[in-house]
């Protein structure tokens, strides 16, 4: 399942208002950098401008307070904590915040590299190629039978293969090295390049999985007739290398390829699920049928 936030997170505010001494520029910068590197959200309350409004999150105010205020409840229900950072360097402030996070039973961020697909729905045509292609069950369909990212955690770090097979360049990996996968503007030549990649897989024999199956079958046959294990392995390696190069798939992902049967079974289940949802939404629409004047006998 997706790593949704179960525990709350602290919103940290670098406070320099009434009842406190202003923080030196260098200290403010090093503190903010250290906290951001630790995965925190930090608000700087300056002399002008506005920030996002308070919500039910717990807040931790860091400042050089004349007198340390006591913790209290915010109007919106979140708890407000205060901590004095006078005379502390950024490392000490990091430690202080970590202990406050623990004390508040809040989530300690930063334990997962966020690598997952993001769908650009203005381009997506709901062709489901990504769902059929992804080997790790990242994709699913929502109640409106629209393709959706269901399991971000299942995505293999640095593998952009699904976006490579998307004919519309609608799948982004914002941390990818190059465009349009990283979110850069999609150009005509990008679309041509993406469709070329699909063509390459088609040239391999319909789709890459059937290509793998065929090649593996050929290799098995050759092995059985020629009894040359190394030749068969070489053939498989050659096929995988081509696939890896075309789609930029990392080694470790290729190592965990499921069997062709698994892939077909998963695609079948996804199609079934989508059909069921479609049928259910049709039933619901029928039930919600608007009463006409005729129904009222007018």
């Amino acid at each position: 399942m997706t790593k949704r936030l179960d525990a709350k997170r602290l919103r940290i505010v670098l406070y320099e208002g009434e009842g406190s001494t202003a923080i030196e520029d260098e200290q403010r910068l090093s503190t903010m950098t250290a906290l951001l590197e630790d995965g925190h959200q930090v608000t700087r309350s300056g002399s002008n401008g506005t920030v996002a409004t308070a919500d039910t999150s717990d807040h931790l105010f860091l400042g050089q307070f004349d007198e340390l205020p006591t913790a209290s409840k915010a109007v919106e229900g979140g708890e407000i904590r205060f901590a004095d950072i006078a005379g502390k360097d950024s490392a000490a402030i990091q430690e202080l915040v970590r202990s406050q996070v623990q004390e508040a039973n809040a989530e300690q961020p930063g334990e997962w590299k966020p690598w997952f697909p993001v769908i650009d729905y203005s381009r997506c045509t709901n062709c489901m190629q990504c769902l059929s292609f992804c080997l790790f069950g990242v994709y699913g369909v929502d109640d409106a039978s629209q393709i959706a990212v269901d399991n971000e955690d299942n995505c293999k770090t640095n593998c952009p293969a699904c976006s490579r097979v998307c004919p519309e360049a609608a799948i982004l990996f914002p941390k990818y090295k190059s465009g349009p996968i990283n979110g850069d503007v999609v150009r005509e030549e990008d679309l041509q390049r993406e469709s070329m990649k699909v063509d390459i897989s088609a040239l391999l024999g319909g789709d890459i999985y059937s290509a793998l199956r065929t090649r593996s079958k050929d290799a098995r046959e050759r092995f059985s007739t020629e009894r040359d294990e190394s030749k068969a392995l070489l053939e498989r390696k050659r096929c995988l290398k081509k696939l890896q190069k075309d789609l930029d798939i990392p080694d470790e992902v290729l190592m965990t390829l499921p069997s062709a049967g698994d892939i077909e079974e998963r695609a079948r289940r996804a199609r079934e699920k989508a059909e069921k949802r479609k049928a259910r939404s049709r039933t619901m629409q029928d039930q919600k049928k608007v009463t006409t004047e005729e129904d009222w006998g007018i």
Binding site: T2, M32, P174
Partner: peptide
């Protein structure tokens, strides 16, 4: 420069991570 400007602002560690976690913030 943002820090030195005196302007109030919000900073987050990583929007991707927040998005993946469906962070209510």
């Amino acid at each position: 420069e943002l820090n030195a400007s005196g302007v109030s602002f919000d900073a987050v560690a990583d929007l991707c991570e927040m998005s993946a976690r469906k962070d209510p913030a």
